[in-house]
Structures are given as structure tokens and as C-alpha cells.
């Protein structure tokens, strides 16, 4: 079946105007800032750009952001699959509460999440004295950054995988069990391949968000230059230092990652739809 389409050149003025407006706004709001980031980052030439990137504080920020993502994304995948599986396959009291709870991070401002963690794990916080007694540093250190990023990204995988698991039902898994498969074999050879594309899609969204998270992390990181600054925080810091070229160089790394994620997302979306 062919979808009805207008040929704007043959129709009246209004559609043509609206299309023009949409294109203009997209260029202005989305494309122009992206181009500007790279223009400014390379504004003083390749050498300055490379120097800015190889600056130890910037490299440290890239490293910290990478480590955070490397911890957060796998945990998120494991959490997302387990949560979706439990909700899709079992009826238990509190099930709908769990579904709602998974979505909470989407409706709470990341800053609030950061403050909650601060109140819980900070020096004056609920668990603060116990953590201090045991020499555990959570706030203003990697654990705090990881925890807040996990909170903020928690729903991404679960909400992609859950509807698929629900739609597919458990017949294939039951069939595998009657054929003698163990629980692990069922998961590995039946459950996982069936949710593969949705899972990867969720993981890409999760990665993009984990890498770009600013608000929540800014509360718990303490902004210690070269120590607890993730890449987004570092961009802000350089900007406040009036080092615009440095800030744009660091921002260009984030932008590149975002563009890669966008391509991956588009490819996976097509796969998922099949």
C-alpha cells in the first residue's frame, strides 16, 4: 500500500511555507550549534585543538566518563533484563508498583537525584558516619558519580525490553524447557536473541545518557579538577575559565559520541522494527 504524499511544488502555499519553516528551524536550532561547536573547537587550528584534547585534565575527564559508562551500562543492561523479565513473566504483589518505580528516574530532575544521594551518603548524611568509620568515600568520588548515573539511566533498557517480552509471551521459553534446555540455555539461546535489537537500542540510549549526564553528577562529584570531573562538567569548567576554545574542543568529543550514538540508534531502530 502506498501512503498518500503531497508534492509540495504542486500544492498551495501553506504546506510549502510550513516545510520551509521546519527546515529553517531545524537548521537554526539543531544543526547550527553543532557546526558551531566544531568551528570554534578548530578555530585556532589543528595544533591547538590537539593540545586542548591532550591536556591532562581533559584526558582525565574523558577517562572518568569512559569508566563511568563502562560500569553503568553493563549494570543497567543486567538490571533492565532482570526487571523486564520479572515483570513480564510473573504475577506478584507490588508488580505494578515495580513498573512505576522503574520509570521514576524519567520524571525526577537529575539534580534531585544528586541531592538525595548527597543526603544519604554525604558526610552529614544518613550513612555518612558509617561510611567514614569504614573509610569509604562515596560522595565526591567515582562511586557517587556511578551511583547517580545509574539512577538517571535506570529505565532505558527495561522500558525497551519489557513491551517486547510481554508481546512475545513465554511460549518459546516453555518450548525450550520441554526440549530439555536448562534455565541458562533458555536465556542464552531463546530469550536473549529474541530481545537482542531492543536490548542494544536501549543500551545505546543508556550510553548516550550516561556519557552526557550533567545535573545529577554535578551535585555529587564536587567538581575537583583532574579528579572528579566528568567530560560534561569539564566543559563547563573550561567555559567558566574563559577558555572557550578548550571548552569547545572537549565539547566536540561529546558531540562526536552523540553522533555515533545517533547513527547506531537509527540502524537499530530499523532492525528492531523487523
Amino acid at each position: 500500500m502506498q501512503a498518500a504524499t503531497f508534492n509540495p511544488t504542486q500544492t498551495s502555499l501553506v504546506p510549502r511555507l510550513l516545510i520551509g519553516l521546519a527546515v529553517a528551524l531545524t537548521l537554526l536550532i539543531v544543526v547550527a550549534p553543532l557546526v558551531y561547536i566544531f568551528a570554534r573547537a578548530f578555530g585556532e587550528g589543528w595544533r591547538v585543538y590537539a593540545e586542548n584534547l591532550l591536556n591532562p585534565a581533559t584526558l582525565h575527564a574523558v577517562w572518568l566518563t569512559t569508566i563511568t559508562a563502562l560500569i553503568v551500562v553493563p549494570v543497567n543492561i543486567a538490571f533492565g533484563i532482570s526487571a523486564a523479565w520479572v515483570v513480564a513473566r510473573f504475577r506478584f504483589p507490588g508488580r505494578s508498583l515495580l513498573v512505576t518505580a522503574i520509570e521514576i528516574p524519567f520524571s525526577i530532575s537529575p539534580i534531585i537525584a544528586g541531592i538525595c544521594y548527597l543526603l544519604l551518603y554525604g558526610r552529614q548524611g544518613l550513612l555518612g558516619p558509617w561510611l567514614a568509620d569504614n573509610d569509604l568515600q562515596v560522595m565526591f568520588a567515582l562511586p557517587g558519580i556511578v551511583l547517580v548515573t545509574m539512577f538517571v539511566t535506570a529505565p532505558f533498557v527495561a522500558r525497551e525490553v519489557l513491551p517486547l517480552m510481554q508481546a512475545q509471551g513465554s511460549d518459546q521459553e516453555q518450548a525450550a524447557v520441554t526440549l530439555g534446555a536448562s534455565g541458562w540455555q533458555v536465556f542464552r539461546r531463546v530469550t536473549l536473541p529474541n530481545i537482542k535489537w531492543a536490548l542494544l537500542y536501549g543500551a545505546v540510549l543508556c550510553t548516550a545518557r550516561a556519557v552526557g549526564e550533567f545535573g545529577g553528577v554535578s551535585v555529587v562529584s564536587g567538581n575537583i579538577r583532574g579528579q572528579t570531573n566528568t567530560l560534561p562538567l569539564h566543559v563547563e569548567l573550561l567555559f567558566n575559565d574563559l577558555n572557550a576554545t578548550g571548552a569547545f574542543a572537549a565539547a566536540s568529543v561529546l558531540t562526536l559520541l552523540a553522533l555515533v550514538a545517533l547513527v547506531a540508534k537509527t540502524v537499530l531502530e530499523a532492525r528492531k522494527a523487523r
Binding site: 511460549d171 518450548a175 520441554t178 529474541n194
Partner: peptide, 28 residues
Amino acid sequence: VQERRAGFVFQSYALFRHMTVFDNIAYG
């Protein structure tokens, strides 16, 4: 279930949709 060794045909057939017919039959 595994110990029963019952050949079970589901009402929906429950074929593994990501596997070929060959791999479906070879699964067990």
C-alpha cells in the same frame, strides 16, 4: 519438565523465530 522427556507441541507452535527450521529441530 526436562526429566519428563515429553515431546510437547504448543497450540501456538512456539517455534523459535530467530532460528532456521533446521536449528529449531536440532535445538533439543
